[in-house]
Simulated assay, not measured.
Amino acid sequence: MPVSDEDQARADFYALIARLMLAPPDDVLLAALAAADPIAADGEDEAGRALEDAWLKLTQAASVVDASAVSEEFANLFISTGTPLLNPYGSFYLTGHMNDFPLAGLRQDLARLRIARARGVGEFEDHLGALCETMRVLITGAPGIARQPLLEQKQLFVTHIQPWYAACVAAIAGAEPANFYRVVAAFAGAFLAVEAHAFRVWEPADATLAA
């Protein structure tokens, strides 16, 4: 079955956050963002309006920044020969330590879904960008990996993203070197808040079976 328009839009937002969190945007991506259409939210949906506003600010910011400046900003925030200023990993936010038991639990869930870190990738699986890429794969599937139902998507999100993403994006937005990434953090937080709300109110078609 084809992916619905709604699910494709969700997957595209997850993919964009993953791309921006794992590497600085190049000129091509910045130009695409600057030319992107606005999104229209339900006027009565507070989370949707916040996402609409955050998306507008991201596209506006992309139109006035230079890729080399954003690359330097990314390095100042996330890359260091010692301890980086920011560590966007679930284990760090949940326990204060890198590569801790939340990562082990995530790896168990990923193994059950037949998903593993690609060979040569340096970031751990509980990096916020890697988790957003994992959500994209759950929504759309990938070569050798089947699309997963909403119940599986909800389980991974609620267990491995929801408990800590807000603290992570707040830390990015509040970091002194953050300029473009302050806007990225606001967009990521707004989108993930929409997802959290949607999963909170969603119930399986057969709630008795799911329970």
Rank of each mutant, 00 (worst) to 15 (best):
S4I: 03
D5K: 14
D7S: 04
D7V: 03
A9F: 14
R10D: 07
R10S: 05
A11E: 01
D12F: 06
F13K: 06
F13L: 04
Y14C: 00
A18E: 05
R19V: 05
L22T: 10
P24G: 07
D26H: 13
L30E: 07
L33Q: 06
L33W: 04
A34C: 11
A35P: 06
A36T: 12
I39Q: 13
A40V: 15
A41C: 11
E46P: 00
A47L: 11
R49W: 08
A50L: 11
A54W: 08
A54D: 09
L58W: 08
T59Y: 09
A61L: 12
A62V: 14
S63Q: 12
S63M: 11
V65G: 06
A69S: 14
S71N: 05
S71A: 15
E72Q: 14
E72I: 14
F74Q: 04
L77W: 00
L77E: 00
F78A: 05
S80Q: 08
P84Q: 03
P84V: 02
P84L: 01
L86I: 11
L86R: 03
N87I: 07
P88W: 00
P88D: 01
P88E: 01
P88K: 01
Y89K: 00
Y89A: 03
S91F: 02
S91T: 02
S91W: 01
F92L: 04
Y93C: 04
H97N: 13
H97C: 02
M98F: 07
M98Y: 06
N99Y: 11
D100P: 01
A104R: 10
L106W: 03
L106T: 07
L110N: 10
L110R: 05
R112Q: 14
R112Y: 12
R112W: 09
L113T: 08
R114P: 02
A116I: 11
R117N: 14
R117K: 15
A118G: 13
V121C: 13
G122C: 06
F124W: 05
L128R: 03
G129R: 03
A130Y: 09
L131I: 06
T134Q: 06
R136K: 09
V137P: 00
V137F: 07
L138A: 06
I139C: 04
T140G: 03
T140R: 09
A142W: 03
G144F: 11
G144V: 13
I145K: 00
A146D: 07
A146C: 03
A146E: 04
R147S: 04
R147C: 03
L150C: 10
L151H: 12
L151S: 15
L151N: 09
Q155P: 03
Q155N: 10
F157Y: 10
V158L: 09
T159S: 13
H160G: 02
Q162P: 01
P163L: 08
W164H: 01
Y165V: 08
I172D: 02
A173Y: 02
G174V: 08
A175Q: 12
F180D: 13
F180L: 14
Y181E: 13
Y181H: 12
V183P: 08
V183C: 10
V184N: 05
V184M: 08
A188P: 07
A188C: 14
A190M: 12
L192M: 12
V194R: 14
E195N: 06
A196M: 07
A198G: 09
A198Q: 12
A198V: 12
F199W: 12
V201T: 15
W202N: 10
E203Y: 01
E203I: 13
A205H: 03
T208L: 10
A210E: 13
